[in-house]
Design a protein around this nucleic acid. Structure first.
Length: 461
RNA sequence: GUGGAUGUAACUCAGUUGGUAGAGUCCCGGAUUGUGACUCCGGUUGUCGCAGGUUCAAGCCCUGUCAUCCACCCCA
């Protein structure tokens, strides 16, 4: 029985998923290749793992909100499975399962599709690519620095430089929550509300605090720690150390926070880690991108230390890369405890940003096909010759496409080559066949060369 | 999951108080029988997202549904 798909909606891809046309695919592959090359330049090894895992494994420690977004299904033996929504949980399982065969530190990367069942919006898809680099086996902040350096390097390769890396530390957040008198079980709620502060303003934030069983005092003590005497006020107040301040306001900010949280060991540890990162960041040349953001939260439940998000300054699309430290995750899957830290690029968002910044990129494209072979008459000998030319060019590594529709006249064939943005055409007729040469045409300059195949191959290289 | 906006040709969009659809670009043919882009001439664009309902009559009004976008929520 055949099913007829009559309605347009039935031939549309499912909600939140997309088809990619050949031109769009050229850009996608180009970007993914650049990311891959960067990962490999930094010594990360590619691995692969299943698109689906046991649901329990994915749901463990990921956080309630994310859990709702996992695509789940039962297989025919009634196992409950889920599609991966990111690469960190699968990495935990992968490492626990294979650690005896892996050398440490284990630096791996993976690029692939992940799935989230959530409402769609610009830059938010249900199926999207992530490119993920992680380091297992390093407790020091060199892991964070290496990953952020890798991020900056990669983004530079992609032509992106107008962004900020927002940096915070779960340990600082935990300490501030504690010192503010916010009960441990209200921590997630409080952080969620505070995350919106810049959007909804102070009054609404307090209102939401009260509505959720917190107090105005909780808010005030939290905000005093985070904003009260921020480095901005210290500038107004005429800090004696103004030069140092200019050099790295982030460190000044953290030092002032250190003073206020001096009785909270957990916070001090976190502050120390971030100061360590900021102090070293100039050696990596990434300091200008870094910004301490005490309100950065991140939803995933497994982070334990520094966390970061990278946000574009010229396209409003949320963060397009993020990461952090998750030292407890491996133990959770039965492996020995290890320091672990990861970085994840949202490939589709990066593509959206590049498209937004240069909507005309597809007009500037040249096809991966280097040469199009056209023939003047559908004569058997000429066509045989054309196929022979194609074979020889391909054997020399030159990407070649040959006209397959003998009904097209030369004009149509060249028009086709032009619309595909193919840089060169080969025009073959009886003269070429007789001389055993080819006419090579540069489509952009409209120049023609009557040459042998070997000579043409040299020009095309 | 909640609230709002939108959906008309391949694309970008018009379409009046209800009277069965247009523009530009693209595409196709020709000017051009060994040459694409530029120019000129001619031509096709269509289940008006889908399914019902009201009406003599629906692109327009009503209901449902699907998709996209925006704001929540959350995130890459």
């Amino acid at each position: 029985m055949s099913v007829h798909f009559k309605n347009i909606q039935q031939v549309q891809p499912p909600k939140g998923t997309r088809d990619f046309l050949p031109d769009a695919m050229i850009l996608r592959r180009n970007i993914i290749e650049k990311i891959r090359q960067s990962f490999e330049l930094y010594g990360f090894s590619e691995i692969d793992s299943p698109v689906f895992e046991y649901f329990e494994l994915l749901a463990r420690k990921c956080g309630q909100e994310i859990e709702k977004e996992i695509y789940t299904f039962n297989d025919k033996a009634d196992r409950k499975l889920g599609l991966r929504f990111e690469f960190t949980s699968p990495l935990g399982r992968y490492y626990a399962s294979n650690s005896s065969k892996l050398t440490k530190p284990f630096k791996r990367y993976i690029i692939g599709k992940v799935y989230r069942y959530e409402n769609t919006q610009n830059g938010r898809y249900r199926e999207f690519y992530q490119a993920d680099a992680d380091i297992i086996g390093v407790y020091s902040m060199f892991a964070e620095l290496e990953l952020m350096d890798l991020a900056v390097f990669t983004l530079e390769k992609l032509g992106l430089n107008n962004y900020k890396i927002h940096l915070n530390n779960r340990k600082i957040l935990d300490g501030i929550i504690e010192v503010s008198g916010i009960p441990a079980d209200k921590k997630e709620t409080a952080l969620r509300i505070l995350d919106k502060l810049s959007k909804i303003g102070e009054n609404k934030t307090v209102k939401e605090f009260v509505e959720n069983g917190l107090t105005e005092e909780n808010y005030k003590s939290f905000i005093n720690l985070v904003h009260g005497n921020s480095f901005a006020e210290e500038i107004d107040g005429g800090s004696p150390d103004i030069d140092k301040l200019k050099n790295n306001p982030n460190i000044i900010f953290l030092e002032s926070l250190k003073e206020k949280l001096k009785n909270n060991a957990r916070s001090l540890e976190g502050i120390g880690e971030l100061i360590d990162i900021f102090k070293n960041s100039n050696k990596f040349g990434i300091d200008k991108y870094l910004m301490f953001d005490p309100l950065l939260v991140r939803g995933l439940g497994y982070y334990t230390g520094p966390i970061f998000e990278i946000k574009s300054l010229d396209v409003n699309i949320g963060s397009f890369a993020a990461g952090g430290r998750y030292d407890n995750l491996l133990e959770l899957y039965g492996a020995r405890a290890e320091g672990a830290c990861g970085l994840s690029f949202g490939v589709d968002r990066i593509i959206d940003i590049i498209n937004a910044k240069n909507p005309n990129w597809s007009n500037e494209l040249t096809s991966p096909t280097k040469v199009f072979i056209a023939y003047l008459e559908p004569d058997e000998k000429i066509i045989d010759y054309a196929f022979n030319v194609a074979k020889k060019l391909r054997s020399k590594g030159i990407t070649s496409e040959i006209n397959l529709n003998e009904k097209l006249n030369i004009s149509k064939q060249l028009k086709y080559a032009n619309s595909r943005n193919i840089s060169y055409a080969v025009v073959l007729g009886s003269n070429e066949l007789f001389e055993n040469k080819i006419k090579l045409k540069d489509m952009k300059k409209a120049e023609e060369f009557f040459v042998t195949i070997d000579e043409a191959a040299e020009i095309l290289k």
